[in-house]
Design a protein around this nucleic acid. Structure first.
Lengths: 193, 193, 193, 193
DNA sequence: CATGAATGAGCCTTCATTCAT
DNA sequence: AATGAATGAAGGCTCATTCAT
C-alpha cells in the first residue's frame, strides 16, 4: 500500500492536481501551487493540503517515472552480461531525464521533500551501484569510477543535451551519443604492451 | 581601447557595481539589481544605467574569466601536440566553470545580452573547433564528435560536478576525473585485430 | 441579479475600496491602486483582486451615476414634448458631468474596461439618439445634428465649465448657461421670409 | 525685442530643443525634459537651463501659434461687420486648438509658467472681449454672454472634437460644425411677436 | 555654459501562504 | 475536507531633478 487511503473525492482531487501539474511540467512551466489550483479548478488550500510545496508536487509528478526506472534497474540485474546491463540501465536513465522535464530537478536535488522520493532515488542508486560493481568485478569498467559518480554523470549528460538543444527527437539521439562517448571512456584502458 | 571612456566617478561606480556583483555571485546569490545597488551604496537607477538587466551584469562579471579562457585557447593552438592542446584547453574550461559561478549560466545561455559576450563565446568556440579539428586530423579523436558538442559537454561536466557536490577543492578534482573519463571516450576506438 | 454573489467579507472590502476611491475622486486625486489599498486599510493584492486596473475602479465608481442617468433617459422618453424631453435629458447629463469627477474621463474614453460600463454608455447613447431623432422628426432641432455629436458636445460643455472654474454651485449654473446657449443653436433656423 | 540676446551656440541649442519638443507634441507624446534632451542630442541640464519645466517648454512651443492668433485678433478688429469679425476670430481659434496639440493644455491652464504666455493669452482674451462687446452693442449676440465665457467655450469645442475623434481633416470639419452650432446659439433670440 | 551620471522616491505588480467561511 | 479571499513583503522599473566635472 503506497498511499494512505483517501476519501473518494479527495482522491479525485489529488489526481486532478497531479495531472494538471504534469501538463505544466510538460509545457516547461514552473510549478506554482496557486496556478495549479486555478487550472485544476480547485481551491488553493486544497492543493496546499495535498502538497505542501511545489517541490512535493514535482516529486509526485516525477514518481511514476522514477518507479519505472527502478523497475528497469531490477530487470537489468537479471542480465548475465554485466556491461550490457549497466549500459542498458544508464541508457534508460538518460533517456528518461531528457524526455521528462520533471526528472532533472528531482535527480539533481540533494535533499528531497517526500520520503517516497528518497526511497526511489535510493533504490535507483542502489541498482546503479550493484550494476557498476558487477561490471567492475568483470573488468568491464575502470576501477576508479565510484558509484557516487553515476547519478552526477547522468545529470551532466542530461544537462549537456539541454544546452545542445534541438527537437525532442534530436535530444534523445544526442543523449545516446553523449552517453556512448562517456561509456567508452568508462571502459578500462587496455594494457599498453 | 575596448570600452568607451567613462568619467572618473562613473568608472568608480561601475567598478563598485561589478565588484559587488562578483561577491554575490561567489556567494551563490542570484543577482538582483536593486540588491546590488543597496549593497554597493548606490542609487538603483545608477545600477540600471550601467546594466540594463541582471544578465548584462552577470555577463560583465563573467567577462574577465572568459577572456582568460580565450587567451588560453590562443596559446593552446601553439602546442604542437594536437591531443595535448585539446586536453589542456578543455581542462581549463572545465576548471573555470566549476571555479567561477558566473560562468555556467553564461556558457549555457543560447542568447547573450552583451555583444562582448557573444564575441568572447564565439572566440572560445572557434578555438575549441580548431583544436578539435586538428586532433581529429591527427586521428587523436573519434570522427563522430562535432565541434558543436564541445560546449554542451563542458557544461554537462560542470553540472555533474555541481550535482556531485563537495568542497571547492573536491570539485576541481572531480571535474578533472570526469573530464578525463570523457576524454578517454573521445579517443578513436583502436582497431580490434 | 447583476453581480456574482460575493462572500460577506469580500463584499465588505469591495465596498470599502469603492468608497475610498470615491473619496479620492471627489478630492480630484488620480486613482492609484496602492494608494487606495493603503487608505482603505487593505492589502494591495486585495484591491488588485477586485479591480485589475485603476480604470476598472474608476468605472465602478462612476457606475451608479451612469445608471441614474440611464434611468432618467428612460423617463425622458415618456415625455410627450420631444424638445423638452431632449433638453431635460441633456441637462441632467451635463449636471452629472460637472458634479461628479468620475464621469468626464469615463465618458470621454473611447474604450471601456468593464462590460458593464460599455453597456451603460450604450444605453445612454441610445436614449440620446432616440430623443434626438424624435426632436428632429418634430422639427425641433436642426437636421444636420448627428446622434454621434451628442456625447462629444456634452463632454465639451463639461470641459468648458471646468476651464471656466468657480465653486461647485457656480459650475452648475455655468453648465446650464452653456447648455442653454448650445441648445439654442441646435434649434432649426427659422425660414428667413 | 522678445528674448534676451543669447550666445550663438546657446541660441542654436534653444532652437533644437524647441524643434524637438514640437515634433514630440505633434506626435502626441507628453513632453519629458530628459527625453527631449536625448532626442535633441543635448545634455539634460542644458534643456533644464533653457526650460525649467515641461510646461515652460510647452508654452514656448505654443507661443508662435498664440502670436498668430493674437495677430489675427488685431486684424479682426478692423472688420466693419462686428458679427463676421467675431465669427472669423473664433473660427481661427478653434481651428488652431484642434490643429495644434500644444494649444489645448496651454489654453485650459489657469496659471501660466512664462510671462510671455500670460501676455499672449491676455492679448487674445482682450481681442475676444472687444469683438464680443462690439457684437453685443450691435445686437448681434445675446446680452447674457460674458467675455469670460469665450475661452472656456472654445476649449470646450476643442475638447468635444477630440472626443468625437476622426482624422485631422475630419476634426477641422467637426470643429466648424460645432462652432457654427454654438454661434447660432449665441445670436440674440428674435422677439417672439 | 554644457554635460550626463547619480539620485531615490514612488509606482506597479506578483506570489507564497494563511485563515475565515 | 474544501474553498478562495486576503495578505503584504518583495521585486521590478521609471522619471524629474540635482550636481560634480
Amino acid at each position: 500500500m503506497t498511499t494512505t487511503q483517501l476519501r473518494k473525492d479527495a482522491a479525485r482531487n489529488w489526481e486532478r492536481i497531479v495531472a494538471t501539474a504534469r501538463d505544466l511540467v510538460d509545457q516547461g512551466t514552473a510549478l506554482q501551487l496557486n496556478d495549479v489550483a486555478r487550472r485544476a479548478g480547485l481551491g488553493v488550500a486544497t492543493v496546499y493540503r495535498h502538497f505542501a510545496t511545489p517541490e512535493a508536487l514535482l516529486e509526485t509528478v516525477a514518481a511514476p517515472c522514477l518507479e519505472a526506472l527502478a523497475a528497469h534497474g531490477e530487470q537489468a540485474l537479471a542480465d548475465t552480461d554485466p556491461w550490457r546491463a549497466l549500459e542498458s540501465f544508464l541508457s534508460r536513465v538518460v533517456e528518461a531525464q531528457v524526455t521528462d522535464a520533471a526528472l532533472p530537478p528531482v535527480a539533481a536535488a540533494t535533499t528531497d521533500t517526500l520520503p517516497r522520493t528518497t526511497e526511489l532515488k535510493r533504490s535507483l542508486a542502489s541498482a546503479g551501484t550493484t550494476l557498476l560493481e558487477r561490471a567492475r568485478d568483470a573488468r568491464a569498467v575502470r576501477p576508479d569510477l565510484a558509484a557516487a559518480d553515476l547519478v552526477p554523470l547522468m545529470c551532466g549528460i542530461a544537462h549537456a543535451v539541454t544546452v545542445h538543444g534541438g527537437t525532442p527527437t534530436d535530444r534523445i539521439d544526442t543523449a545516446h551519443r553523449y552517453l556512448a562517448t562517456l561509456l567508452e571512456g568508462m571502459r578500462p584502458t587496455p594494457p599498453t604492451t
